[in-house]
Amino acid sequence: MLSYLFKRLAVAVPTLLVLVIVSYVLMYAAPGGPFDTERALPPEVMANLDRKYGLDQPLVVQIWRYVASIVTDFDFGPSFRYQDQTVNEIIAQGFPVTLTYGAWSFLAAVLVGVSLGIAAAVHHNTLLDYFAVGVSIGAQVLPNFVMAPILTLVFTLWLGWLPGGGWQGGEWPYLVMPVIALSTSFMASIARITRSSMLEVLNASFIRTARAKGLPRRRVVFRHALKPALLPVVSYLGPAFVGMITGSVVIDFFFATGGIGQFFVNSALNRDYPVLMGVTILAGGLTVLFNLLVDLLYAWIDPRIRY
């Protein structure tokens, strides 16, 4: 078990380092400095700015300082554009929002997706099954940036039930559309994966043994079939997490929820590199952390992995 964890960490740490280095080098290689504006600043001012932000040092030193300050102080440095705000402050402001609707979306996608998938598999070739398959095929072509306008069109413009954007501290009317828009396609994928793996497991030899023992169907499904049927779902959770954290950019952008995605897009339009990098590295770090959790979950379910 420990060696398994160690092996996973052996991938996780280089992943983060590669991410940091690549993004820093990208930024360093960018044509034009971060303080280039329409009106050229006097060279002395530029030099002062560069010194203030440490941009006059060689690349390697810059990266080293950057990584060191992240590791020791969790400090991503100052923003170039938002005056007087550090990247940390921006993240601290936006992250709770993203985390809130992100967590709800993740929960919704997993709970609804898994339940729908199990129900479809257990009632194979019934109306319920066809419904589940239909939903999961349909939702494949409805990524978040398609869902968001459609939902707004229906629930805000036509029915007038829900506000078309904003956050208001996360009150539920402001939460509904972001959560649905973000979770639908993942919910559909999870339902599809659960259904097909559950169908496969229900045909397994050990399920026949369980049925031959005279166990009620409920117990056969939930006690014997659920764990193995969930393994492919667990493997999918990592990519789903990446997809959701990426999708949150669209949610923040479209619904003006004020999460980190909104800062990310603004920074991208304004070439505010420290914020871009900070958000990218944060997303990468969360992904790596989440993947570690998924690996542990996988090992917990499948006893044959714990070596």
């Binding site: 990446v242 991208a268 070439r271 992904t287």
Partner: peptide, 14 residues
């Protein structure tokens, strides 16, 4: 394991 969309956007910005 990298959230590539962020890197891709960074890339496009640069």
């Amino acid at each position: 394991a990298i959230p590539y969309m962020f890197v891709l956007i960074l890339f496009m910005v640069v």
